[in-house]
Write a protein that binds this DNA or RNA. Structure first.
Lengths: 213, 213
DNA sequence: CTCATTCTTGACTAGACGGTCAACTAAATG
DNA sequence: CATTTAGTTGACCGTCTAGTCAAGAATGAG
């Protein structure tokens, strides 16, 4: 029993990718099952062979998108790098990525998970739960990094957990602004302001230089 | 001709308010014209007497909501107050307001304009344009305040325009996080981190105190 | 070859969607 | 009172929605 019986197909994967593409560009409400099927080249009967509902597909799409984000972020936030470098990597990565997204999709799209989450939080509990868990994982990268930064003495005061929430809010807000204005430039100087948020701004660093203890 | 002829009615206002209530809680896509009409106690025929389309109603809702926000913000950002006090007022106002929103609607809702904007930016150009203009007005409060802060010597470096964009991104991001997690506590310490963003954090202020040149 | 399993297909449903319309009522003007 | 204007009503439209289902085709196992 090395292979499974019956027909094989990548229709499920195509459906998931189509859902990501269409919903990220527009929204959950604006994209119907029919549109997703058409883009994937899959008939609706097949859709409901793989997914019990539209919401279940969206949960799968959130998961799949997270899986690809995770590969990037594991590299960006590698514990082999000094914490400050991880943060700088991340800020640069966001700018580069949204610039690439704009090339591919024709406009800045911001964060898929947060967009879907904010839209569906009230009416679609399974989607809401998935988004909450993914957002928490985003935050964990920052938490770990900030804890390391504190251990190394890069940051003096403040709870890394609180700082991580703050930093995530700032980054996500910048992504939303970039989406609304279709302007990746709003993400270019994430680093300067992001570091200021956790007391590592250039001003604070100046102060540190002349007042180091 | 002191009064206008024909019947009078507040149906239009009721429709606008119902649209705000329902769409803010759920989303543009999840709320239909029928639901808005039912909540407003207005028949659909009347709806289309006042509005040419659902999108036109939503634009009116964004406008009406902005009008009420503006009253609050004009007070919060009164030029009679010192700039730092304006900012502190604003941060406190956001927390208090979302706490009140949670009491009234049963959950934290975040920013109506940004939620609708992020959802509709691709498929509904008239809504997108309205949101962009309102978001710009939000930013103007911050720009003016930061310009004043710089004039007073509260801030040393940095373009107020850039700082305003940054601060708005942070605030909006925090509101989205609060919506997604239904947690107003995420907004309690907006002041501490918000001021750090523009170089007025407690760390920077400590530095300033011992290094005031 | 036979059978079980997996996937595909297209036709189908019932309800919700945004939007239309003609007839009707209420108010102000002359 | 007649007319004009503004607002109300309920029935109606075509389309789109998520979701169903029975029949068939491809695949691997025995």
């Amino acid at each position: 029993m090395v292979l499974r019986m019956g027909r094989t197909s990548d229709a499920r994967e195509r459906l998931v990718q189509s859902a990501i593409d269409l919903i990220w560009q527009a929204s959950y409400g604006a994209v119907g099952v029919d549109a997703i099927c058409e883009r994937a080249g899959v008939k609706k009967g097949s859709f409901y062979h793989f997914f019990a509902s539209k919401d279940e597909l969206v949960v799968a799409a959130l998961d799949a998108h997270w899986a690809t984000r995770r590969v990037d972020l594991d590299r960006v936030f590698s514990p082999t790098l000094p914490p400050l470098e991880r943060l700088k990597n991340y800020f640069a990565h966001i700018f580069a990525r949204q610039t690439a997204v704009r090339q591919k999709y024709g406009r800045v799209l911001g964060c898929f998970h947060h967009s879907v989450g904010s839209e569906c939080i009230q009416a679609a509990p399974v989607i809401a739960a998935k988004v909450q868990s993914v957002v928490t994982m985003y935050r964990m990268y920052l938490e770990t990094t900030l804890r390391d930064a504190k251990a190394v003495g890069l940051i003096r005061a403040g709870d890394p957990v609180v700082h991580a929430k703050t930093l995530l809010a700032f980054i996500e807000g910048a992504l939303t602004q970039a989406r609304i204005h279709d302007d990746p430039e709003l993400l270019r100087n994430l680093e300067g302001t992001g570091l200021a948020l956790i007391g590592l701004g250039s001003a604070a660093q100046d102060a540190e230089a002349t007042h180091p203890g």
